[in-house]
Design a protein around this nucleic acid. Structure first.
Lengths: 237, 237
DNA sequence: TCCGGCATTATTGTTAACAATCATGTAAAC
DNA sequence: GTTTACATGATTGTTAACAATAATGCCGGA
């Protein structure tokens, strides 16, 4: 084989990039709100961004669409999804069904190493929030929920939570108040305390309240579409 | 436009078939246990079965893999998934988190028309079971859970339940006792009664017990792979 | 008779060219 | 001056040919 691979692009070091990786990267970008709702994802742009062929990108977009993180408009392209108010309700309802129980399960299984990992995560989360590093703060905040799901030891529910957390980030971007990035991390701290104490019932209750707080900070009467509703905006009446 | 479309094949009446349709059809076939775990899904076979191009099939298989209903072995092909015992545990854990709450939500929202629909569904389910129509019985049995999720009015959780019900069918095929098709429909009747009475708490409790019963009828120590584990079977010891 | 290497075949994976659709800008007509 | 029609460009969707990998059967040799 020739010593130099075909793509000497900026990012990719040596290997061909997996489409799962592309999906994860876009999930991450959505969580960090670097890809706001309604953003067009042109195939060409993604091709050069990831240094892969069009087919790989196409498959990644299909996977993202199956998770409802992107909308696929036929012959028009792929856009970051803009969940409606009704979908917001469904997402939070699902989270409130899953995550309190997940917290309980995780609290009953956690090893000391995992408790320590969660604590150190909270420190990082707090540090990012204090230093005003919005991107890190928002990513770590979402990752808290994902860590709990990981510790619950259930791959099925972990996948669900990843999807719900990502879509929640879209919701905050659309319906969230301007100043508030998202939930304050002190609630995460309380949950982690109950978690460390092995108090599953308390962790569940706190998680429930936490999710209610996040939802209550959304104004679901606000704008729905990502890239401005021109039709509705410039109406006669 | 010309009066006769290009494909005058057996099944498709007039339209080009959607890949979502293909996914649904395969889901259905898995639920009915017409596609047992480990079955190879060759692209060519699926192409002529559905009368579509290879790309469409490929996309459908990718979607099925993202739902963990098929396994995609690189350069080897697509196979109906063979969930492990650990995955079985995760699937039932997830179902027991979701479905009791779903039953409660549905009981609080059900319209008289929906109650009637559920009753008539139960009759069909019972009829199929009495007449020994195994394929219908098994499909209607799974559909009962899906109907409840539909009535709960939450698209996110509906999608989750569809996936879990389908994978449960795989589990029953792998680990289930020979004679028992799956759960008896009388438990469904009890749930529907509580549902019709608007007793959400009771419906949740019955659903929980129902799922425990299904799980208890599995022998998770039994064979795991679908198409026989030749390597393990013909061991020296 | 049994085993290993080789060739053939079949199936999957990728690439590239082609077709179709949509968006945009220009010009002509009223 | 406004609007409609058309042409151009860009982007998506599809098809088909090609490459690569794995499976299978065959043959030669011990």
């Amino acid at each position: 084989m020739p010593p130099a691979p075909k793509n000497m692009h900026i990012i990719d070091i040596a290997e061909e990039i997996d489409e799962e990786t592309i999906v994860d990267r876009i999930f991450e970008a959505v969580v960090e709100q670097r890809l706001p709702a309604g953003t067009k994802l042109s195939e060409q742009a993604l091709c050069e961004a990831f240094g892969v062929g069009r087919m790989r990108i196409r498959r990644a977009l299909l996977l993202l669409a199956s998770r409802e993180v992107v909308d696929l408009h036929p012959n028009k392209g792929a856009y970051i999804a803009s969940p409606t108010a009704e979908q917001a309700r469904e997402i939070f309802e699902a989270r409130m069904v899953l995550e309190p129980t997940i917290a309980t399960i995780a609290a009953g299984r956690a090893t000391p190493a995992e408790v320590a990992a969660l604590k150190s995560h909270l420190e990082a989360e707090s540090a990012a929030q204090i230093s005003g590093n919005r991107r890190d703060a928002i990513r770590l905040s979402g990752q808290f929920h994902i860590m709990l799901a990981q510790m619950a030891g259930n791959g099925v529910m972990l996948r669900m939570v990843k999807e719900l957390v990502t879509r929640t980030s879209l919701l905050i971007g659309i319906y969230g108040s301007a100043g508030v990035t998202n939930c304050r991390d002190d609630e995460h701290s309380l949950i982690a305390d109950a978690f460390a104490a092995g108090d599953g019932a308390k962790a569940a209750l706190l998680m429930q309240e936490h999710l209610e707080h996040i939802q209550s900070h959304l104004d679901l009467t606000a704008k729905s579409g990502g890239p401005v509703d021109l039709l509705q905006l410039f109406r006669k009446e």
